[in-house]
Design a protein around this nucleic acid. Structure first.
Lengths: 191, 191
DNA sequence: TGCTAAACTTAACAGTGTTAAGATTGGAGG
DNA sequence: CCTCCAATCTTAACACTGTTAAGTTTAGCA
């Protein structure tokens, strides 16, 4: 039954179970020992795959970031004419809906100090990917609309701030859970 | 020198020193024992003033919230004609600048699950005060401008989302520290 | 002055992250 | 097929954490 020395899939299982614990109890109650126990493994086993707890958290963060990235990409690619501003709106909606669906993910992702947000138009390799993706797509769309560089720059930041701000508010505990975010998003993001 | 049983000011000293530790090392490294040690007091002394760690964190949160509230109020009251939309802009700027000044405060305030954000126009007594204040002032200003209820409602949320989103981004680690937030705020918040 | 309740200390408990030392194992090379 | 090694996992310990119980000090009121 519980074969000792279970092999091959502990690393990804730690990431997935860790994320599940975060989703259920919040980041503060994530314990390496409980996590190891949940994976039917000794308390020191995680250290074969991660140097320390922080490295595991970074791995989970990357895992979540990929999910979020995929949501944005889907939203973009499923837009009829993906070079129209509608695509920007859809990416924004996808971003917010991601954190409405998983409220615990927001504070986990952004309260940890491991993310790099690159506001410039350079392509920093290690920066937060969903924002990089959004930035690139929005740039070409705005360019397509004939906006000048200055307006593009501020347009990107303004839109991202709105989207991120709504995500922050929506993911907060104690916020009205039955709030009609769909309407708000439509009205706010189109400006 | 180090008189035993130091009286009368331990509670506020715990809050202030705790906040200082958060500011220096982040919320994750705040330890009750180190904090007690820093206040020249035994490890169990804080429990005379707070039921547990969480209650101390709530107290610190209230302390920070008051500071932020005062910033908003100052910004509002120092505006020439405080019934003009300029006052809204100034409150927004004050909000963002608060978190640019104290980047650690953002994740401390909003990653903890103790805050209640009330998006309705009711006056929830226990809701996050700075937002309540902003909401009230903005309401009368928009009303003064002749906006209808629907537009006011979404206007308030839209503006707050932008402001809060910028604060979130600005307070992030790894974000360009020399970014010219003043310009961005002027361009974004006026729309 | 004496008493009481609040404020503090000491000592202990369980739980945490982390490391060192050793046990087990899959799989590559002879 | 066997051997051996590096990767993986275990056990045992360490220092640190939040928290509680029981006892000590002290300010301030009767």
């Amino acid at each position: 039954m519980d074969k000792k020395y279970h092999h091959g899939e502990l690393k990804i299982q730690l990431i997935k179970s860790g994320l599940q614990m975060i989703q259920e109890d919040g980041i503060n109650k994530l314990s390496l020992r409980r996590l190891a126990q949940m994976c039917n493994v000794s308390e020191a086993a995680p250290y074969s795959h991660f140097k320390n707890k922080e490295e595991l958290l970074v791995a989970i963060q990357e895992y979540v970031t990929e999910q979020l990235q995929r949501c944005l990409q889907d939203a973009y690619e499923k837009t009829e004419h993906c070079n129209s501003p509608i695509a920007i709106l859809n990416m924004g909606k996808a971003y917010v809906q991601f954190f409405i669906k998983y409220p615990e993910y927001y504070s986990f992702l952004f309260a940890q100090p491991y993310l790099k947000i690159d506001l410039s138009m350079d392509n920093e390799p290690n920066a937060f990917e969903p924002f990089q993706y959004y930035k690139e797509k929005t740039y070409t769309i705005y360019k397509n609309e004939g906006f000048d560089e200055e307006r593009i720059k501020y347009g990107i930041i303004a839109m991202w701030a709105k989207v991120h701000g709504i995500a922050a508010i929506a993911s907060m505990q104690g916020v009205n859970r039955d709030f009609e975010w769909e309407d708000v998003l439509d009205k706010i993001l189109v400006e």
